[in-house]
């Protein structure tokens, strides 16, 4: 079976500086890939480039064999959802309005099923996003991605600054997605979360993927982890 997502020699950057330097990446249905790397390695830029929010300068991206469009709204319609770093909600809009705006397509996820999974949000339905706690905001950002009924989900540092209980909920959501066959690309600095929910770990360095291993093998090889990430 071919991979759902195939990235080949992807390059991208901002004015004057190349950030992605030939990324190759495959993602099978239902798999979970934890993407690690030092600050500035290009992890977030990879997510933004896949989404079309940073234009690719060269390389190809295929989703289920078809080239992924370049413009963000077409990427989203092709079935890619992203939970962005820093959540990026619409502060004045209520939780219910966020859910309504995000919902598209037919599939498992409707506002009702999402609220079942994330009951914290149900109680806050009529509050503007600006009044939510950090954890609730992250739940809403995840709900927004689920409601597009995606075929692939990109999470950019979802555990950033959150309490352990919230991180557990994130883990639950990722495992649920994978069980339904939706692959997840998880950019993380929290190794514990990445090890819990991903079956593979990849490490980025200077705009390219330098190491990829099954999670168990990666954990069994602390020397490599230390060399690549500066952690044990």
């Amino acid at each position: 079976m071919t991979a759902l997502l195939e990235v080949r020699a992807l390059c991208a950057g901002y004015a004057g500086s190349q950030v992605l330097d030939g990324v190759d990446l495959d993602l099978e249905r239902g798999s979970g890939l934890g993407l690690l790397g030092r600050n500035g390695a290009g992890k977030s830029t990879l997510v933004l480039t896949l989404m079309g929010l940073v234009p690719a300068t060269s390389g190809t991206v295929r989703l289920d064999g078809a080239p992924l469009p370049r413009r963000p709204h077409l990427v989203a319609r092709a079935g890619v959802a992203v939970v962005p770093q820093g959540r990026r909600l619409w502060p004045p809009l209520t939780v219910a309005e966020h859910l309504r705006l995000a919902h598209r397509g037919t599939g498992t996820w409707t506002p009702a099923t999402v609220l079942d999974l994330l009951p914290q949000l149900a109680a806050r339905r009529h509050q503007p996003a600006a009044h939510l706690s950090g954890g609730e905001q992250q739940m809403l950002a995840i709900a927004r991605a689920l409601l597009t009924n995606p075929r692939l989900v990109l999470l950019d540092e979802p555990s950033d600054g959150l309490a352990p209980a919230v991180v557990d909920t994130i883990a639950e959501v990722v495992l649920r997605l994978r069980a339904e066959g939706v692959p997840v690309l998880l950019v993380e600095q929290d190794l514990r979360l990445a090890f819990t929910v991903c079956d593979e770990i990849a490490v980025m360095e200077r705009g390219t993927i330098v190491h990829r291993a099954a999670t168990a093998a990666f954990r069994a090889d602390p020397a490599t982890a230390h060399r690549l990430l500066g952690v044990a």
Partner: peptide, 19 residues
């Protein structure tokens, strides 16, 4: 509501599939 979403964060609306 979509217009307000665009006002508050346009890239995010595009990433949800809104032209």
């Amino acid at each position: 509501a979509a217009l307000r979403g665009i006002r508050d964060n346009e890239p995010r609306m595009r990433a949800l599939g809104y032209p």
